[in-house]
């Protein structure tokens, strides 16, 4: 009798304890979500406010000016905003594609080929992760100037192609996702390096590549300092630098807050869309990593 009572009590306590344990992470994650989403929702609300409403109504009261803000933004300097958006797509899309290609091939080579100096190369790349890109921006500008590439599209694209963290990720992923036995089997069947990479390694590494692509795409999309230093011609600006010219309009000119906020909102739409469409690869990747 006593033992059954104890046992049932224990039975009862166990799930309750597990439930209590389960609430804490959820609560923390919810808090984190609120922390991250609150500013975004503010941007969403503030973008609907007209000039007069922006600084006079309460923070989360929706305004009436969204359409006129969008129209003003589209009309600002004959639609230069769309040019900046296009430039950003070029930098982020082109840069992320090239970077993914370089990272994948280097990561694959570092993981699957044993050659002299492999660890030296890899350690140097790991060291590269520790150097913030911010520190490199000015030296890179001086180097680009020396070869006459400053103020060109290349000056923003080239420095962002080699991405140590991407290579690191690709190496880790290739080690885990591409079995040596498979490559060995391919070699016995007479496949060359190129064929092995294309037909065996790349399909297996696809989820990892998507992760690297997304990382780089977001990093370049949000990068401010490099294009700010590299580019003088406002026709080549990406959104970050372009919107900054609206904010820092000089001491004696008002900042165009409405346009900046609306511009910021429009500029995150493609990122959100990208994440939603790429989400399934992302999920496969995380699940894949968990299983291995």
């Amino acid at each position: 009798m006593a033992t059954t009572a104890v046992r049932t009590a224990a039975h009862r306590a166990a799930p309750r304890g597990r439930r209590a344990y389960g609430i804490a992470p959820t609560a923390i994650l919810l808090l984190g979500a609120v922390y991250c989403l609150l500013p975004v929702s503010w941007v969403l609300v503030a973008a609907t406010k007209s000039k007069a409403e922006l600084f006079s109504t309460t923070a989360f009261a929706p305004g009436t000016g969204l359409l006129s803000n969008l129209a003003d933004l589209a009309a600002y300097r004959d639609g230069v905003f769309w040019l900046w958006l296009g430039n950003t797509f070029l930098y982020a899309g082109g840069g992320a594609l090239l970077s993914t290609a370089v990272s994948t091939i280097s990561g694959y080579a570092l993981a699957k080929y044993d050659f002299r100096g492999r660890n030296l190369v890899f350690n140097m790349l790991i060291g590269g992760i520790l150097v913030p890109a911010v520190v490199l921006a000015v030296p890179q500008y001086l180097l680009m100037s020396a070869v006459g590439l400053a103020d060109t599209y290349w000056s923003v694209l080239l420095p962002q192609i080699l991405h140590p963290y991407g290579i690191y990720l690709a190496r880790i992923y290739a080690t885990a996702a591409v079995p040596d036995a498979l490559l060995e089997a391919g070699r016995i069947d007479g496949a060359g390096h190129w064929l092995l990479l294309r037909r065996v390694a790349l399909p297996l590494m696809l989820p990892g590549m998507v992760t690297i692509f997304l990382f780089q795409f977001v990093a370049i999309w949000n990068n401010f300092l490099l294009p700010f230093i590299m580019l003088g011609d406002d026709q080549k600006f990406p959104l970050t630098v372009g919107l900054y010219t609206l904010l820092a309009a000089g001491a004696n000119q008002p900042s165009l807050y409405n346009l900046i906020i609306t511009g910021a909102l429009v500029s995150i739409v493609p990122l959100v869309a990208l994440f939603l469409t790429m989400q399934r690869y992302w999920r496969t990747d995380l699940a894949g990593g968990a299983l291995k």
């Binding site: 000015v138 700010f228 010219t245 820092a248």
Partner: peptide, 16 residues
Amino acid sequence: SKQAGGDDAAAKFLTA
């Protein structure tokens, strides 16, 4: 070429 104004503009010009 429209730039961001103020101190940043001066720093950028000096670097260039």
